[in-house]
Design a protein around this nucleic acid. Structure first.
Length: 973
RNA sequence: GCCCAUGUGGCGGAAUUGGUAGACGCAGCAGACUCAAAAUCUGCCAUUCGCAAGGGUGUGAAGGUUCGAUUCCUUUCGUGGGCACCA
């Protein structure tokens, strides 16, 4: 009886499907565990071996937890709204709904072959109206809520209205709108009130500068723009003023930051989120404008800091360096520029502004190091010593951050130093020896000099002192800034959730909840609508209603994915997005598995939505994911052949027509030839390639060969000849009868011919082998190269395991004989190691431990059911088909997953496993067994009586015996 | 430039987190079985000295702490990723 994996896997997959083996019910009697994968976008391109990596890991973990008695939720679905399907529709005219459906079918078929334990009854698709009705519902919650800075949470708009009616804007952040009193509020008309409310809503519409991508004909969020081009497709992105929907994620900046302390994410991912949020603490300082020191009394109240007051307000994180200010710089777009520029500088400033305008964002980004700027002719006054500070404009200061103006402290800031040096602005040194005159020193640990009342203070201590003084003088205050901006939430596209909004009288009116879902209407044309609107604007019959005109943009891709993990808990609920009992039971996602590419997009948005739903009382937790595991990339291992190409006389370009001779050099020959002088090269090649005449008449180029035509590094020459017509008659220069390819590790991509299709491997080796091999490749979180050759080792292991039960010649070999202590030692060591490894997501070492155990059992000839059965329990998360099959062969019924075996009970592990090494003088070590938790004296007696130790001590007394942790005994002679 | 990772045989990687470095697998070499192939099995496989027994060296490099360092600290180099005029 052979290991017939094809038959076994097909039968078990069939059985699982028929029995609904992985259907999960909300069973409050069992502890829960929620294991989630980042759901895929169903793209049309097929899978390669890198794609299932995370799914396999989560599948193993899900089964493992079920084995340990947990009720495990392990669902799968599709992020089925999105740009690519619509781009495809534009090119081919196929409706996105159709292509998406088709892609999902393919996707599911591929996944099913690998034997995942997804509960498909809970499948969700973000483009399904049953699903997006709740996306729209949550949008309305956001629209009808505001962030109360006093209670520090989101609240329904009613509490804001109460506040306005009672106290006006008193106690609220004044920056949002200009202040008004309760009576003024009551006097406003409706449009005025709506306009004010819009400044508070968590989802709001506003006229502002957006990232516009002409090629995609839509607005993009900041995280969808990378280096000035769109993340998808790499199209140019420009700034444009438009009316847009936004998500007030900035209100949650602090809580998103603080929440990172409670979640188990990798340090680098947390760092990425922190960088994105970009919190910085500093101060805003207002400087009086020159030219001469003013005699005006400084104000002392908050209102005096109003930006409308004369003066220049800057933002700095280093108010301690205020005596080192040698110049001011405004962003070119700063509103004061026009006002303060003096007559003799007007032309120069205008020229500079023209220059700045002429430069694109990309140019600006590419030439970061270039120092440019222009003096305005105006001066600000240092409030402490009355000195005049020249005010410049320069593009390195950004209008959108802080106040759009900075104070230049060249001795402490690199950019300021470069600026001062470039424009010959004298530099004031306020840090004594710490400044050497050649470069800025951004230290906080220097003692201040030349700094008036701050003299002699440590800089980091001077920061609060300086702020306090500024507050006393009424010219400054502590201020926290964030780099993060509110997230753009509308797209001028078709394939997304329609907004449940109707515009009338210039105001947005939400649909009533009972009118949801607002279904996406069918279109035949996917081109843009008029005036920068999306395709929905072309459907005038749909967009014009009695109540007004519908919002024609749609929600972005991240809308549906920001809350999908909640829907899995209660996917068929028609009364709410998820019943409170379901979300209370399942709670946070215990383990979330996915790539790092969503670090600052999806992961931040879904964290925010969770916090909003929590604040509004819809769920009981405010962080969605307890633990996040980022699987690493599987890189492709590309194979190269080295082609010798003649250079055409006429134009000097290399030829590729079929008539021309084609030759390939094996990798070793290539290396040798490349090391030769040109004359030697032709002398070497000519005997074999007669068409080579002169040294400069040919070229040698490495080109990608399809990895599927290569076994290890040996090229299958015959298959290669058939690959492309022009290779059919090629000459191959071999080494020892073989053509060897060059190897390089690169990202997997079709164009590099280094992708490997999982279907082929599953067909050839089986799903169990494939699953275990993907895990065996290396640590889950590391990026590692794919090597098809290695899969045979894992396949051999499974065959070896099978032979512990059945052998071809003898048939059944397993017995009911009782296990010996030696057998149990092998088993128990495996249990301890594999359980621990699986718990820590160290799947590669767990697979190794399986191999060791099977090797040992084979070696000792152990075929005992008692031992093998428990091994299957351990194995079922990794290789479910073979484990279930053999489990049945042993005469068991039901699934191994539900076997109530005491495998994972700590007391189950025999004493036999516990042996500990002894180390003497750091030199000699051997194994000996000692009991746990014995006293130092007992250890001493044990060690000294130990035969091996006696031998090495050779009669000499030990000076000291150290009982180290990990039960290691160490003796110093 | 800043931040975060990371560096171990020909290759992927292991080392119970300070305790026998190189587990396990791939590749390679030698052998068994076979008419042959496949499959399977056995042995060798960091480096150096040695016939051997047995030594020496060795975890990117240089220091340090420790009885003991791949692991901790300092400096430095290489690779990968993120951020990038955020004041």
């Amino acid at each position: 009886m052979d290991y017939n994996f094809r038959k076994i896997e097909q039968e078990w997959q069939q059985r699982w499907k028929e029995n609904g083996a992985y259907t999960v019910v909300n069973d409050a009697s069992k502890p829960k565990c929620y294991v989630l994968d980042m759901f895929p976008y169903p793209s049309g391109a097929g899978l390669h071996v890198g794609h299932p990596l995370g799914y396999i890991a989560s599948d193993i973990y899900a089964r493992f937890k079920r084995l340990k008695g947990f009720n495990v939720l392990h669902p799968m679905g599709f992020d089925s709204f999105g740009l690519p399907a619509e781009q495809y529709a534009l090119e081919t005219g196929q409706h996105p709904a159709l292509t998406t459906e088709k892609n999902i079918t393919t996707f599911q078929r591929q996944l099913d072959k690998i034997g995942f334990c997804f509960d498909w009854t809970r499948e969700i698709r973000t483009s399904d109206p049953q699903y997006y009705t709740w996306t729209q519902w949550i949008f309305l919650q956001l629209f009808n809520s505001w962030y109360n800075p006093v209670s520090n949470r989101a609240e329904p708009l009613e509490t804001l209205l109460q506040h306005f009616t009672g106290k006006g804007t008193e106690g609220l952040d004044a920056a949002k709108t200009s202040a008004f009193t309760a009576s003024a509020w009551k006097a406003f008309d409706d449009p005025q009130k709506q306009d004010i409310l819009m400044h508070y809503r968590l989802a709001y519409s506003s006229f502002g500068e957006v990232n516009w991508c002409e090629a995609l004909n839509t607005v993009l969020a900041n995280d969808e723009v990378v280096n000035g081009v769109s993340e998808r497709g790499g199209h140019p992105v420009v700034k444009r003023k438009m009316r847009q929907w936004y998500l007030r994620i900035t209100a949650y900046a602090d809580r998103l930051l603080e929440g990172l302390a409670q979640v188990d994410f990798s340090e680098s991912l947390k760092e990425q989120q922190r960088n994105w949020i970009g919190k910085s603490q500093g101060a805003e300082i207002r400087f009086e404008l020159g030219p001469a020191p003013s005699t005006k009394e400084w104000g002392t109240t908050e209102e005096d800091l109003d930006k409308n007051q004369p003066g220049l307000t800057v933002y700095t994180t280093r108010p301690d360096t205020i005596f080192g200010v040698d110049f001011m710089v405004l962003a070119p777009e700063h509103e004061l520029v026009e006002q303060i520029t003096t007559a003799d500088q007007r032309q120069a400033v205008q020229d500079y502004l023209d220059y700045v305008k002429s430069r694109s964002d990309r140019e600006r980004m590419a030439e970061v190091k270039q120092v440019t700027g222009c003096f305005t002719g105006a001066y600000a006054i240092n409030p402490f010593d009355g000195s005049e500070i020249p005010i410049w404009i320069a593009e390195y200061v950004l209008a959108g951050y802080g106040t759009g103006a900075i104070m230049g402290v060249p001795c402490g800031d690199e950019r300021d130093f470069n600026f001062a040096t470039h424009f010959n602005i004298p530099i004031t040194n306020i840090i004594g020896d710490h400044f050497d005159g050649n470069s800025a020193n951004p230290t906080k640990d220097a003692l201040l000099t030349n700094s008036g009342f701050l003299n002699g203070m440590l800089m980091r201590d001077a920061i609060p002192v300086a702020i306090e003084k500024l507050v006393d003088m009424g010219i400054g205050r502590g201020q926290i800034n964030y780099k993060m901006r509110d997230a753009g939430f509308s797209r001028q596209r078709y394939w997304g959730e329609p907004f449940p909004i109707i515009w009338a009288d210039g105001m947005p009116h939400p649909l009533r909840e009972q009118d949801l879902p607002l279904e996406l209407p069918h279109v035949d044309q996917y081109g843009p609508g008029p005036q920068g609107e999306g395709p929905l604007a072309n459907l005038t019959g749909w967009s014009n209603t009695n109540a007004g005109r519908r919002e024609t943009s749609t929600m972005p891709g991240y809308a549906g994915s920001s809350w999908y993990f909640l829907r899995y808990m209660d996917p068929h609920n028609t009364a709410s997005f998820c019943s409170r009992s379901a979300s209370d039971y399942w709670g946070q996602v215990d383990v979330y598995v996915g790539g790092t590419e969503h670090a600052v997009g999806h992961l931040l948005y879904s964290r925010m939505w969770t916090k909003v739903l929590y604040d509004l009382g819809h769920i009981s937790f405010d962080e969605p994911y307890k633990k996040l595991v980022n699987q690493g990339m599987i890189t492709g291992s590309s194979r190269f052949v080295y082609r010798v190409t003649p250079v055409r006389e006429e134009n000097g370009s290399s030829g590729t027509t079929a008539q021309e001779p084609v030759a390939f050099l094996s990798a070793g020959i290539y290396t040798r030839v490349m090391a030769m002088e040109p004359a030697a090269q032709s002398a070497f090649l000519q005997p074999q390639l007669p068409w080579i005449t002169e040294a400069d008449a040919w070229l040698i180029n490495p080109i990608h060969a399809d990895v599927n035509l290569v076994d290890g590094t040996v090229l299958d020459v015959e298959k290669f000849r058939q690959w492309k017509p022009e290779y059919a008659t090629a000459t191959f220069l071999l080494e020892e009868g073989k053509y060897l390819c060059g190897v390089e590790t690169e990202k997997m991509s079709k164009s590099k011919f280094n992708t490997v299709n999982p279907d082929d491997l599953v067909e050839k080796f089986g799903a169990d082998t494939f699953r275990m091999y993907e895990m065996f490749l290396g640590p889950l979180e590391a990026s590692k190269p794919w090597d098809t050759k290695g899969i045979e080792g894992v396949h051999r292991f499974l065959k070896k395991l099978w032979r512990l039960f059945y052998e071809e010649s003898k048939g059944k070999v397993w017995t009911t004989e009782a296990a010996s202590p030696a057998d149990l030692k092998i088993l128990h060591r495996a249990i301890r190691k594999i359980e621990d490894d699986t718990d820590r997501f160290s799947f590669n070492t767990a697979v190794s431990s399986f191999m060791i155990a099977v090797n040992e059992l084979t070696e000792t000839g152990c075929h005992k059911k008692e031992v093998l059965e428990l091994l299957l329990v351990l194995l079922v998360p990794y290789a479910p088909h073979i484990a279930e099959e053999l489990w049945h062969q042993l005469g068991n019924s039901g699934s191994v997953l539900d076997a109530a075996y005491p495998v994972f009970n700590p007391s189950f592990i025999a004493e036999s496993v516990k042996d500990y090494p002894v180390s003497i003088n750091g030199k000699v070590r051997t194994n000996m067994s000692i009991a746990l938790d014995i006293t130092a004296a007992e250890v001493e007696a044990l060690v000294l009586n130990n035969e091996v130790v006696q031998k090495w001590l050779a009669g000499k007394p030990a000076k000291k015996i150290i009982y180290v942790r990990n039960k290691m005994v160490n003796v110093v002679i």
